[in-house]
Computed example of a mutant assay.
Amino acid sequence: MSGPEHALLVRDFVNTYDMQCDIEEFGAPSDLSGWLAERGLVASGASANESDLGLAVALREGLRTAMIDRPRPELEGLLAALPVRVSLDGPRLVPLHRGVRGGLARVATAVMASAADGTWERLKACRATGCRWAFLDTSKNRSRAWCSMRMCGNRTKTRAYRERRRRDAVP
């Protein structure tokens, strides 16, 4: 799916944990630093610690929650832990820290860029309980609710249909 790079970065960051399959991409600090390095957010060889990992997971889950239930003051607190400064070269926001914290701050600047260009409102998490996969809603009217109509949307609609039939069948 296409979209602005910063919005896709936020989506991919949130999707580092697959709730449905219980697959965690950030199982260890080295997984976090590797993920950030693969995306050019930190220099190769950057080293994360347990504190960085805890912040990354909290940020990820805060973003996921905010994609479902806007606004979230908890998310603002997490973003405050990743300070940036304004650079007139661009202009752009530049992380104050280097290394993994700086890489996480780059994710935070991607959130800000998404808010600035309107894609933040299109970043959503699947409404299906147990899924919560992040996606960029590119529908014209911004009404998409599921990561995939074929999977989660179909399951949700089928479940609702069966429930209505069951209720109607009860005398």
Rank of each mutant, 00 (worst) to 15 (best):
V57M: 02
M67I: 09
L55S: 04
A81P: 00
S51T: 15
A58M: 04
R85H: 09
E61P: 00
L82Q: 08
L75H: 03
A66H: 09
T65V: 10
S44I: 08
T65Y: 12
L63G: 10
R64S: 09
V94S: 03
A58D: 14
A46R: 06
G77E: 14
A46C: 05
E74S: 13
R60Y: 02
A56Q: 09
A66V: 05
L96A: 13
S47W: 02
R60D: 00
G77P: 00
V42R: 07
D69P: 00
L36F: 08
I68V: 15
S51Q: 15
P83Q: 02
L63W: 10
A46E: 11
E38G: 11
G34R: 13
A43C: 07
N49H: 14
P95R: 03
P73E: 12
L41S: 09
D69Y: 03
R72G: 00
A46H: 04
D52V: 14
G40K: 11
S47L: 15
E76H: 06
L41Y: 12
S44Q: 14
S47I: 15
P91W: 03
L79F: 08
L82D: 08
G77S: 10
A66N: 14
V42T: 15
G34D: 13
L59F: 07
R39G: 03
M67D: 09
D52L: 10
P91V: 04
L78T: 01
E61C: 01
S87W: 02
S51H: 12
L63Q: 09
A81G: 00
R70L: 09
